[in-house]
Simulated scan of single mutants.
Amino acid sequence: MAQQVLRIKIYQSDAHYRIPFSYQRRFTYPIPPHSTVKGLICNVMGIKSSEDEKFINLKQGLSLAIYGTYESLVKEYLWFRNLEKDSHISKFKSVKNRTVDNIPNHPGGQMPVTVDVLHNVDLIVYVYHPELMEEIRQAFENPSARLSILHLGRAEDWIVIKEIKLIDIIKDNVSQLSFFAWIPSPADIDDELIPDKENYEKFYTQVNGNLFRLPIFYEITNSNQRIFNRYIEAKLFEKGGFRKQSFYMDSELKIPLFFAKLRAD
């Protein structure tokens, strides 16, 4: 059993973690899914592709636990533009035309979209890897190899890292959690980081939360499409209480740790 895990505290003034298949009204999860946090880790470590040796090592042992709160949710009204040829013709009736009612317009078609945006988001992300945890910690402390500005969700949703720390974990009883959290299914929980698998199965059956099937790994096709091929199931816990249970916990913050194992196979 792991004795230590990496704790990363993150602040975002604005954030949108898009729920797939929401289009004209783009809904957001209250906390980022595991694939989004995995993408941040790849960013800080400078991992450019799935063929990278670091990525191959990362996906063989990475486990994540994600928690968070936000102050408010605001609906932003935007125009999304489609620059495909057919979309332009549908609006302007000709490839060369750029005017409507004798007024010049931007090319392509456009659609009004509502985007849910979270304000003043505080996240706590726990990372465990049997081999790379120290390397991940150093990458966050000095992200000199990063591929882009550090963000979660949209590219414009920059993050502020408030803390990076290796912390001890302890076993204790708990019946309350004041954060949004992903609670992985018994098939996707990291068995090394729960005291008792059978009791966890009972807890998972009884705990409140909407069930989601979350993508975690994908492949890029020859036509440059992203096809997800590995999923986990998790409940989204929305703060509150549950039947008292024994968990491994953050020894300082007393947060029960629900680590989802992110494995390629």
Rank of each mutant, 00 (worst) to 15 (best):
P107A: 14
G109P: 05
Q110I: 13
M111G: 07
P112R: 11
T114R: 10
V115K: 15
V115L: 12
D116H: 12
V117L: 09
N120L: 04
N120T: 05
V121Y: 01
V121R: 01
V121N: 01
D122Y: 07
L123F: 02
V125Y: 02
V125I: 15
V125A: 05
Y126K: 03
Y126V: 01
Y126G: 02
V127D: 04
Y128H: 10
Y128K: 01
H129E: 07
H129R: 07
L132Y: 05
L132K: 05
M133L: 12
E135W: 06
E135C: 06
I136C: 06
R137H: 10
Q138D: 15
Q138Y: 11
A139P: 07
F140P: 07
E141F: 13
E141P: 06
P143L: 08
P143T: 04
S144Q: 14
A145I: 05
R146F: 10
R146I: 08
L147C: 05
L147I: 09
S148H: 15
S148I: 09
S148C: 12
S148N: 14
I149H: 11
L152D: 06
G153V: 07
R154M: 14
R154S: 15
A155I: 11
A155L: 14
E156T: 12
E156N: 13
E156S: 14
I159H: 08
I159Y: 06
V160L: 14
V160Y: 12
V160H: 13
V160D: 13
I161C: 09
I161L: 12
I164W: 10
I164P: 10
I164K: 12
K165M: 13
L166C: 05
L166T: 07
L166R: 10
D168F: 08
D168L: 09
I169P: 04
I170E: 08
D172F: 01
N173T: 00
S175Q: 08
Q176S: 09
L177K: 04
S178V: 01
S178T: 02
A181N: 01
A181H: 00
W182E: 03
I183L: 01
P184E: 03
P184H: 02
P184V: 02
A187S: 12
A187M: 10
A187F: 08
D188V: 00
D190H: 09
D190S: 11
D190N: 15
L193Y: 04
I194C: 02
I194P: 05
P195L: 03
E198Q: 11
N199S: 15
N199G: 08
Y200C: 03
Y200D: 04
Y200K: 03
E201R: 13
T205Y: 14
Q206E: 15
Q206D: 14
